[in-house]
């Protein structure tokens, strides 16, 4: 029962989502719309599960007063404040939620990603050393694309922006396509394995 029911649910849900594409009429079209809404609702509960887990882990850290428990207090205060303010007063511009979003979350997230500029610079120093023909290609493509997109590139050589555009439109597109087709074939075979119950490692643990 514990093993068979999830397999049946996966099979039925997956098959209906496939059939509705080929037979876009009732009952399959209606089922597809209904399943999409159900999917959204269950995903929302999955977020609640994640939040519950976060509260559990950091609550334990605080109650045990383990190293860095003060940061867990900061995390939980941020979580509770944002949730209560958002649920209580709404999330539109002009609300307290939006004030917190604009003055805390936006600066934090954009600075966090901006910080990566420094790490990506040191990573590129290591990656861009022309030790082989392949590494040289990587180096040349990156430099040409970067220079071609800034005024300095145009100043150095007026055709550099066109070279960067050509690299993006042709060799880059070819590589991206090969990757995309490879991913698509992988996703299609994995999806089939999951729907047919061949892939069973998605139950999550040995409960």
């Amino acid at each position: 029962m514990r093993r068979q029911v999830p397999l049946v649910i996966t099979f039925v849900a997956g098959i209906i989502m496939i059939i509705q594409y080929f037979i876009p009429h009732e009952p399959f079209a209606g089922l597809q719309q209904r399943f999409n809404v159900w999917f959204l609702i269950i995903s929302a509960f999955a977020l609640i599960l994640g939040i519950g887990n976060l509260i559990k882990i950091h609550g334990e850290r605080i109650s045990r007063q383990s190293a860095g428990w003060g940061y867990s207090v900061v995390l939980l205060v941020g979580l509770v404040t944002m949730s209560v303010v958002g649920i209580g007063w709404g999330i539109e511009p002009g609300t307290p939620f939006f004030y917190l979003f604009w003055n805390i979350q936006i600066p934090l997230s954009s600075t966090m990603f901006a910080l990566l500029a420094f790490f990506i610079a040191s990573a590129s120093y290591r990656a861009f050393r022309a030790r082989s023909f392949e590494a040289t290609l990587l180096l040349a493509a990156a430099i040409l694309v970067m220079l071609g997109r800034v005024p300095l590139g145009n100043f150095l050589w007026h055709r550099l922006p066109a070279v960067a555009t050509w690299i993006m439109n042709y060799p880059n597109t070819a590589g991206q396509r090969a990757i995309m087709i490879g991913i698509a074939l992988g996703v299609i075979s994995s999806s089939l394995r999951i729907i047919l119950g061949i892939e069973r490692g998605l139950g999550g643990g040995q409960q």
């Binding site: 514990r2 029911v5 999830p6 397999l7 649910i9 996966t10 099979f11 039925v12 849900a13 997956g14 098959i15 209906i16 989502m17 496939i18 399943f35 999409n36 159900w38 999917f39 269950i42 995903s43 509960f45 999955a46 996703v187 299609i188 994995s190 999806s191 089939l192 999951i194 729907i195 998605l202 139950g203 999550g204 409960q207």
Partner: peptide, 16 residues
């Protein structure tokens, strides 16, 4: 596992 199975099934069907 039951809701997870539903989410996985729908995702697999749509992805395919």
């Amino acid at each position: 596992r039951w809701p997870l199975a539903f989410v996985v099934g729908v995702t697999a069907g749509i992805s395919l």
